[in-house]
Design a protein around this nucleic acid. Sequence first.
DNA 1: ACCATCAGTGTTATCGGTAACCAAAACATA
DNA 2: TATGTTTTGGTTACCGATAACACTGATGGT
Lengths: 337, 337
Amino acid sequence: MQHSAKTMKDVALAARVSVMTVSRAFKQDSSVSEATRARIRIIAEDLGYVFDATAANLRTQKTNFVAVTVPSINNAHFADTVGALSDSLAQAGMEVLLGHSGYDVAQEEVLVEQLLRRRPEAIVVTGGRHTERTRKMLLNAGIPVVETWDLPDDPIEHVVGFSNAATMAGMVDYLVAKGMARIAFIGGDTDSDTRGADRRRGFVAAMQARGLDASRLIGAGKPPISMREGASALGQLLNDFPDAQAVICVSDLVAFGALTECQRRGVRVPQDIAIAGFGAYEIAGISHPTITTINPHPRLIGTQTAELILQVLDTASGRIGPQRLEINWDLQGAESA
Amino acid sequence: MQHSAKTMKDVALAARVSVMTVSRAFKQDSSVSEATRARIRIIAEDLGYVFDATAANLRTQKTNFVAVTVPSINNAHFADTVGALSDSLAQAGMEVLLGHSGYDVAQEEVLVEQLLRRRPEAIVVTGGRHTERTRKMLLNAGIPVVETWDLPDDPIEHVVGFSNAATMAGMVDYLVAKGMARIAFIGGDTDSDTRGADRRRGFVAAMQARGLDASRLIGAGKPPISMREGASALGQLLNDFPDAQAVICVSDLVAFGALTECQRRGVRVPQDIAIAGFGAYEIAGISHPTITTINPHPRLIGTQTAELILQVLDTASGRIGPQRLEINWDLQGAESA
DNA sequence: ACCATCAGTGTTATCGGTAACCAAAACATA
DNA sequence: TATGTTTTGGTTACCGATAACACTGATGGT
């Protein structure tokens, strides 16, 4: 069973043509007669020949890889973005080389270096916070760099994202319009979850701008933050700030956890306390009651990023300046608030 | 900003040594004096040199890639398995090259071919059903092949998985022990979700083996199957089989959707109908009521697969025969049944 | 003092494709 | 038929690293 891998040479020998002709038979445009191409393809398939991309990559200096870093693969948001990105790039014959940083900028640095070794055509990083060395590596990489899921003040190059802080201002407005003033916030207490921390800051700023008390803050711990943290945080909220009329959670998972805790304790939602989340996860639309949330359109971030990359790579000569694409988010009002 | 990428030659020139010495400075074991190694490392960093893995891969005929196919990235189970696999392999300096097949064996075939071009050291595929050509490609690849999340009768080579059918027998036993006999099943009606179909078959077989009526079957459509399908399927169940005492769902997401539909309709769980799921998703443990489920230990599948691969690669000479690792699953009884 | 040993470094060939250039054959046109 | 053009296929060099081997000077044992 242990074959030594076949090369073009083997195919060439079997087909009685030169290696170059075999190479041409595997390319789309090049000049071989359809007859020989078909013949070579069949012989190659028979021999079990598999094209060696490694060698081609070296010679052509093209890998058709786009490197992508996400904090965690096991996060529906990033998975959605990566999925959409991957699908869009696949149409242009490009593949995604994925790595996860575990919500840690130091690990991200190691990851970025590893990915750059593979000579990707472009690199997409999630978030706008990185170590100094990571920034330097990305700047020097000589390939398009895209930061996503954020709108950093000082971007490395391109950006496709939205302002996490702004979404929270929108949510505060929504709740205030519903007549609520004593609003609490769960999550975003640690710097590891950069976007969560941004949302918390956005919440505080929005509350203060409206002359409201922004001190009802509950921590949820290190990411990945999920339902269980939401449940226990709600317990803490009821204890620390029993007068809260509403609570905004750093994500829908936390919001759902909080919701279940309310159900367990017999606290009525939204009558006793309104609950809002973030992310428009499927659960927000199907839980009972449904959860008010923000839809940041994760798949759209992916497709837009792919489009941007393809466009920039296409215009390799007449370099396009740094692009800043702001993705629109929606507020989905629901039964919970 | 557009640097032409530096090579070892540039570093060698700057350090006034040969390219070979630079190469050695970047390897762990090789013989260079610590002084020169350190000097070269610093010069390389200054120049912004990034090691070119493509060239090294070609020369050494090693890529340190393990290729992995999953039906969908956006599935907590597969994401867990891939995450664990990736982490375990990283400790051995290997990276995961991930592709998704969209629950389609034809797309899987294309994907496998693409992945094999990158010359991975091993390949992991999710599931045990493939096209004939996929099987042939995998057999001829000359690298270790692992099928996961299943226990196929006729494996390609190694297997790390569990019997989806057997889990359902376990669940039926559990419900029967609780005094239920009229048990329904939601999902697994399409062949695309191989594992879902296996579970449905396992359910039918288990019911029949116990002399129970196995005809209360509700479809849930094509994957990805999620909460919404669960909700509407439950509506159909109440309509078609109003006498059902319990329902087993193809996944926890479906089960949760069904649960919410019950809440919406005022059907009490588990008094009016018991609900069971599959997967031990976080939601099963936190919903109100919690959901009875099967834990197939997705991360364990990943770590075991990684261990197997490393072991097989290590024993490259004295080839190890096909391994068949059965992962134990647990039934987690909960409030819903 | 002499040769063996070894750490440290250099030289050459090579991994498996493809760009660039070239040559022969096939076809077209006057 | 002669000449120009296009099609098809071959030749050579090369992408950037490293295995294999060669070489140098230092160390050491006798």
